[in-house]
Amino acid sequence: MKRKTKRLWIILGSMASFAIAIVLILSAFSSNLVYFKAPSQLINHPTVKGTTIRLGGMVLANSLHYSHKDQTPTAQFQVTDGQAAIEVHYTGILPDLFREGQSVIAIGTLDKNNIFTASEVLAKHDETYMPKEVADALRKSGKWDPKYGPPPDAATWDHMTQPK
């Protein structure tokens, strides 16, 4: 065997074994690599009460309201993944993108009444990029309301916004 061919096989062999090692490691730690947990996961597999968890999901339509205890208002809303919803309480400044129908991540703890007290709320925007006019036209057509979730597939925008 020529030296070059030998080197090629050595490199390919070590790369392949390395790839297997990485796949094994990643699949073993897969549950730790998720940044947040969905409400249904949290309810079905409860963690120890009081540990800090990251809860991710969509803010349920018509669930957001504010209660004024002191001077700063506390936002109360429900986070859902379609299967379960968890009540979240948060005192502080919400990100600009926060609204009903937006995906958010709340960082905090779950108490025994299944109320999640967040110390931080992050907005997780979706992968859709859409000009304001298109969004307005979609809303006007009555086929999409941002309150109830992410916008429809981009391929459908044109015929959804066309006047009949």
């Binding site: 925007h125 859709t128 981009a154």
Partner: peptide
């Protein structure tokens, strides 16, 4: 795609139309 992340998934894919308006 494999794990829940704060970063949104890719806008462009081979099988779907891109979730972005042509003007962008």
């Amino acid at each position: 795609n494999w794990w829940h992340t704060l970063h949104q998934p890719s806008t462009f894919s081979i099988i779907h139309a891109p979730a972005m308006s042509l003007s962008m």
